Simulated scan of single mutants.
Amino acid sequence: MRLAGKTAIVTGAASGIGFATAALFVAEGARVIAADLGMPELEGTTGVAADAGDEAAVKGLIKRAQKDFGGVDIFFANAGISGGLASIFEQSVEDWEQILRVNLIGPFLAIKHAGPVMKERGGGSIICTASVAGIRAGAGGPAYSASKAGVINLVKVAATQLCDSNIRVNAICPGLIETGMTKAIYDMARDSGKESLLGNLNPLKRGGEPDEIAHAALFLASDDSSYVNGHALVVDGGLSISHPFYNQSYGRTAF
């Protein structure tokens, strides 16, 4: 029960990594507010319909935690969207604005509004979902990759600006994980009989499961990581040690 007596907010909790993490946090003794655009239905949590990229919604989640549980100890800013794999020359400004709003502004709002509340409580842990796509090119679309690179730098800056608060701010960088976001990739591979090739570009030769990211989040949320701060924890089967290059311009606008 590594999170006994703790209160956690998890965004993007209706499925995938968020759902698995909220369930694990409950199993480890936490009181969990599970938030998503559609209200998550997960036993043992308080489900809330909320847009993680909307400031009023984020403030509302924190107020709910204060009202129901007396404060916030853990905020897992996990909600995100992929935006597809269109090239820079095919994406619109509106595409970028939406992707950055959810993927980067969402974690910023979590840090901005949870930080002062956690400080009053004596400390806490803020975790943001980044991606291996934020480390090197070749693992995601342009806006998605840029947003996740921003998350990695955001947690480093936030860790410095929350010094003396006993609040740790870290990121998780998942590789290929079977979630709603990657469903099309997995379905395509299975339909074509190429499921065995999924994850073939990492040394473990497989894709990951949401539970494997959830356990990384548990580590960062608990006192097990009490001296880990401003860090981007990569959980990708070894993919990012050598991102392969492939011709992303094939079939797209290129020069």
Rank of each mutant, 00 (worst) to 15 (best):
I62Q: 02
G70V: 05
K119C: 04
R206N: 14
G18D: 12
E212F: 14
G12L: 10
D95T: 10
Q66L: 05
T179Q: 07
I105V: 09
R190I: 14
H231P: 00
N103C: 09
N247G: 01
K67P: 00
I152P: 00
S196A: 15
T129Y: 05
G141L: 09
A8D: 04
F25P: 05
Q98S: 15
S240V: 04
I81C: 03
I127D: 03
G84A: 08
S165N: 06
N229C: 09
E212S: 15
Y227T: 09
A133C: 08
S222Q: 11
N202F: 13
G38D: 08
I135P: 03
L154S: 05
A8V: 05
A143V: 11
D224A: 15
L201Y: 15
F69W: 06
T253E: 00
Y250W: 01
A86F: 04
G180C: 02
A158Y: 02
E120W: 10
A139F: 09
L154E: 03
K112T: 12
K205C: 08
R252T: 08
G115T: 12
I33F: 03
T7V: 14
T179P: 09
G5W: 06
A143M: 07
T45H: 07
G193F: 12
A13W: 13
G12W: 09
A189L: 09
T7E: 07
R101N: 11
V157C: 03
V234Y: 00
Y246H: 09
R206Q: 14
I167V: 07
R2M: 07
L100E: 04
S240C: 01
A27I: 01
L198C: 14
D236V: 04
H113Y: 13
V132C: 01
A14T: 10
H231A: 05
A34K: 14
D164N: 14
Q98P: 02
A221M: 12
V26C: 00
G106C: 08
M1Y: 10
A23P: 04
E94T: 13
F69N: 04
A50Y: 06
G123K: 12
I17C: 05
I17Y: 01
I105L: 10
N78G: 10
N170Q: 07
A184N: 11
I105P: 00
E212R: 15
G207Y: 15
A139S: 07
A217R: 13
I152A: 05
I172A: 01
E28W: 02
L239K: 02
G47L: 10
A35W: 10
G71V: 02
G237T: 06
A50C: 11
G71A: 04
G134C: 01
M1T: 15
L239R: 08
G44T: 13
S147T: 12
I111W: 07
A133T: 13
V72C: 02
I81T: 14
A52L: 03
I99N: 06
E97W: 05
N170W: 04
G138N: 03
G251R: 02
A34L: 12
D164Y: 10
S249C: 01
A189P: 08
A232T: 06
L198P: 15
G5Q: 05
G83C: 11
G70D: 06
G230Q: 05
F76K: 11
A114L: 09
R168C: 04
A254T: 13
H113A: 05
D73E: 02
G180N: 10
V234M: 00
A34V: 12
A171V: 06
A50V: 09
T11Q: 00
G5D: 08
A4E: 13
G71E: 02
